[in-house]
Structure formats: C-alpha cells, structure tokens
Write a protein that binds this DNA or RNA. Sequence first.
DNA 1: CGCCTCTTTGACTAGGGTCAAAAGTGGTGG
DNA 2: CCACCACTTTTGACCCTAGTCAAAGAGGCG
Lengths: 249, 249
Amino acid sequence: MIEINAPQLRESHEARMMTFPEQFERFARIHLPANLSDAAILRFQALGRAAAVSREEALALNLHADHLVFVCSGATKLVAHASDRRDQVVGFHFPDELVVVPARAEHSYTLEAVRPSELLVFDYRDFTELARSDPAVLRSLLECARGSLSRSREKSLALGRKTATERLAGFLVAMAVRIGSIRDGTLSIDLPMSRRDIADSLGLTIETVSRQFSVLRELGLLETTGKAGVRIPDLRALEARAGYLTEAA
Amino acid sequence: MIEINAPQLRESHEARMMTFPEQFERFARIHLPANLSDAAILRFQALGRAAAVSREEALALNLHADHLVFVCSGATKLVAHASDRRDQVVGFHFPDELVVVPARAEHSYTLEAVRPSELLVFDYRDFTELARSDPAVLRSLLECARGSLSRSREKSLALGRKTATERLAGFLVAMAVRIGSIRDGTLSIDLPMSRRDIADSLGLTIETVSRQFSVLRELGLLETTGKAGVRIPDLRALEARAGYLTEAA
DNA sequence: CGCCTCTTTGACTAGGGTCAAAAGTGGTGG
DNA sequence: CCACCACTTTTGACCCTAGTCAAAGAGGCG
C-alpha cells in the first residue's frame, strides 16, 4: 500500500470529526460562488445542520420534504424502497458530492452510510428559496442535478438492457473513474460498499454479483484482494465488456 | 368518444403546423419568466430552431453537444443506445415538456418521435450561457431537471427490482396521470407509443409486454380497445399491482 | 376490401434467482 | 501472535421468470 488517492473513504481511528463550521466551509468552497457576501454565506449556513451517520445507518430526515445533502466524508447510498422490502440503490456518493433526497411518494427514499459519514443536511425548499435570486448557486444546483440525471439514465440502460457481466463491468469502470487510484502502477479500487450494496445497485442478487466477479477474474480482467480490493490491469479491456457502444462516427 | 383531454397527441389531417414564432411563444409562456424583457426574449428566440419530426424518426442533432428540446406537439421518446442495437427508452415526453438530450458518451442518445411532433431545439450550452444571470430561467431549468431525475430514479427502481406485471401496471398508472382523460365516466388512455416502445421503456420484450396486458385484462384491471385504447375502471386497484409501498407512517 | 404491420398466443430455452453449504475475511481476546 | 468466531463472500444444485422463436390473429390505412 504505497499511496491512497481517496483517504477520506478510509475508516481510521485517528479520523477526527470535522466541526460544523469546517464542514460548511468545505461545502461552501465547492458549491457556493466564491464572491458570495459573508452575510449571504451565513444565511446558507443557518439552514444547514451536521449529521454523523455510522455504517449501514440511514440519515434521519423528515419524510415529507425533499432534502439536499452534502457528503463531507465517508460514502453514502441513496436507496429506493418498494414493497416487500425490495431495495434499489439509485446512487452512491463520495466526499464533496451533493445529493438530492426526494420526499416519500409512491416509493420512499433513504440516504444510508456505506462507511461512517459526516453529512451536511439542508431542506431543499429552504435552500432553493434562499438561492432563488442567486444565479451562481442555481447554476451549481443545476449542474449537480444534470450530473445525477445523466448517471441515472446510464443506470436505466444498464438495468433495462444489460447482462449481469456487463452491469458489473460497467459498475467497476465507473467506480475506477470516481474513486480509483494507482497503486504499484496498477489501477486499483478499494470498494467501500458490500456485495449486497453492489447487488442492490445493479438489480441483481449478491450471489450473481459474486459469480460475475469470478467470471471477470477468470477472464483476467481483474484481481481481487480481500473483500474490498480490486485491481484492474487493463481498463480498456474491462470497458469492452461493459456493453458500451463501439467507437463509431 | 365524447371528449379528449389531450387533443395535441392526436394525429389529425387538419392539424396545422405551428409557425416558429407561435411555437416559441408557447415555449416562452411556460418556461420563461413572465416579466422577461422583449429584448431578452428575442435573444432566447434567436438560439432556437423549429424541427418537425415524423413518426419513428430521430431528431437530427450534433452528437457532440447537449441539447434542450421543447415538445410543442406530438410525443417523443429519449432512447439510450448500447451495443448490439439494444435500446432503452429512458423517457417519454408530451406537449409543453422540456427534455435534456445528452451528448454521446459511453452510450448515445437520440430523441425520436412516437407521433409526428413539432419540436423547438436549443443548444444546451448556448441556452444556459444566455440564462446564466437570469434566476427565473435557471429555476425553471432546475425544476425540469429535478422532475426528470425523479422519474428516472423511479424507473431505476422498476427496472432493477420489479416484476413484468408491476412494471406495466406502474407504467399505465404514470401514463394515466400524464395523458389520461375521462371518457364515458371511465379513466382512459390513448397510448401514443407502440408495444415495442413500451417494452424498450420497461426493459422487457414486446411479447412479455403483450402477455402482461393480457394478465391485467384477465384480472379485470383494464380493458383494451384497438391497439392504443386502454380503459382503467379502478386506478387504485391498478396501483396496488404496481408494487408501490403500502401506506405506512 | 385487402394487404401489411403490429399484437397476441404458444412452445421451448436460458439467464439469473433461490436455497443451501463451504470457504474466506477480519476483528477480538487469550 | 495466533486461534476463534461471526459475518461476508463464494460455489453448487435446482428452479422460475422472462426471452426466443414461431405462427396465428387483429387493426387500420390505402
């Protein structure tokens, strides 16, 4: 273990919790415009609250309101719940990302920690109301929503039309891009989520996910170390298994 | 046929094409703030172009740019294309709705007409650039994106975790809400899309969709008239078959 | 009215789910 | 430092839902 690109994902004993102002400062640096007045920043700060969520715990939220959550540290999943406790992970989130958690409708949504996480929570209505006349903040929210929409559409394609192997290959490619790092000269991922989380994200069972890991391993497309470690010797080769469109005009 | 709530979906011989200014005026009324100056409106108008697309035809777009498309009349589908010409419909759109069509990435997207449609096309970059300092326009775009994201997440849940029957039931409930009307005292839908479109939207085959129509018909949850007509005597009963979360605290 | 397409139904297959058990992981305490 | 233990992951055997292939039946436009 020479270097870790995403140290904020690690659970470590010495990980000091951030104070609320530190968390907010981090959020503001990324998602609020740089030239915002101190007074305006304080108004946004007044809307937020910090929440620490431990592994597999759901963030407590008012079910009847939309929320905006900023991930300071850790890793989270947004889970949609249908009848018969069938769950679908509709997205994973990593530090510095912003998530919109919808209110309960035909289905309910919970934001759950995949690793112990520090979160900053806003009421969506309050936040957009305060931002209603601030184009820079609105643009930031719009970009966030567009990114989520794009990932969600890719997921629809995977869930609707791809085989189990393609889904796992695509998932690992996406994770490599988002939280991968180079170790010993090889692209590596330290997966923060369990096989169950992956299964619930890909619309499969844990057994099928496990079998597909074996398939990709036997194809020489990846090596696994322990439960979480994945090494990808050839990202292009893995992409080719993901059912992506072949390069054409 | 006593009344039709969504006459704009009908293909009719006498349907006169709208002129570009008429189309734009309709778009502006819905998606631009009422108090926008004439000069500003003209700047937006200068960015748009009208396009008429016939049934099953794809809107011609620059593949390497995002687009914003307003549906004036007809009905469209946004289709994601994976390898081996497997297609996934990621959304349907009806008059007065706004769609974001993403540029080609790992997969490509096309916007195709399900009925002959009149569309208003904008380059997404140009549009947001012009709107960059207009909070009202940005809020409108944000609302549009949030609605699409919400529908897309519901679709992920359906594709990942629901049975064929639940998917069709949920689809018909959603269509009833979006384009249904009351005829002879019964909730009715005149489906603008083919069985293939429905299958591509639900991640099924046309045969399975057809079989599920038969299942719901035999359960007394719907009646079909011709290829497109669906009557829903009891919406609540159909919802109960859609795998929605049962009403709880 | 007739033809062509779309939809429905039927028979069979296969990919992934289910149930069960073995193997591996990693944390804890002796 | 290692052995134990609870839990997660992997593997195996079998099953079921939806896919595939094929053919019959309806619709609707000319």
